[in-house]
Design a protein around this nucleic acid. Structure first.
Lengths: 118, 118
DNA sequence: CGGAATCCTTCAAGATACTG
DNA sequence: CAGTATCTTGAAGGATTCCG
């Protein structure tokens, strides 16, 4: 399949949508250093609701980026882990967050300047 | 300023939001090969409404990623161009779209498999 | 503990029409 | 040509409650 994100029907648009999702990126970063329980992911990401976290994790699982493992225990224990495909995304996601880290100040300054001019 | 995308208040979250925005990424890619008129950007990106394109361009301008140049002509002519800051983003954005291009098939397959299992 | 189900709000996006 | 203004709706997301 040829990929053309500029074409409306292309699945790569949907991939960009997923990456674009704020929670997806944070979940992927959270799982970057290995398998984690649901609760661990939840507490690592400030401000995410239970609903959105579950929804995000399901989406990532559906896309083959994370695995979901349910252990038959009481109380229940569910682990999430990046797949090989998911780990292959770390480079690109890291490049993005690195950029954000380095250039936040420039952006904040640009915003202040833009807002001040009007 | 220290950047921590996991913290709700951190501006880097907002940066991620902007990058995450589907149209922002496509606009940045469109402008990657140089200055373009409004109409050129519009026709390059399939499916974007006038409202969303203008809104996206304004947001990128506010963040210091693109410049907006109005020429005093009739009919009007407005050029958009990536700033140095905007161009510094191309690497990270390119990494993302490259990933999407390479791994679309894997994702589509994973989705089909996931949906088929239920 | 790790969800699912429900309700409810708001707000973002599309369509449409108008303008300098 | 390159927008702005207004309206309407669909759906994303929060809060809450219940369950295996």
């Amino acid at each position: 399949m040829q990929a053309d994100p500029f074409s409306a029907q292309c699945p790569s648009r949907q991939v960009l949508d997923r990456i674009g999702d704020r929670w997806s990126v944070l979940v992927i970063l959270t799982l970057a250093d290995g398998r984690k329980r649901y609760g661990e992911v939840a507490s690592a990401i400030e401000g995410v609701s239970q609903k959105m976290l579950t929804q995000t994790l399901r989406g990532l699982e559906r896309d083959g980026l994370v695995t979901r493992t349910v252990h038959a225990e009481v109380p229940p224990r569910v682990d999430y882990e990046l797949t090989r495909l998911g780990r292959s995304l770390l480079g690109a996601v890291g490049a993005l967050t690195d950029w954000a880290t380095v250039h936040i100040d420039d952006v904040v300054e640009a915003r202040a300047s833009y807002d001040g001019r009007r």
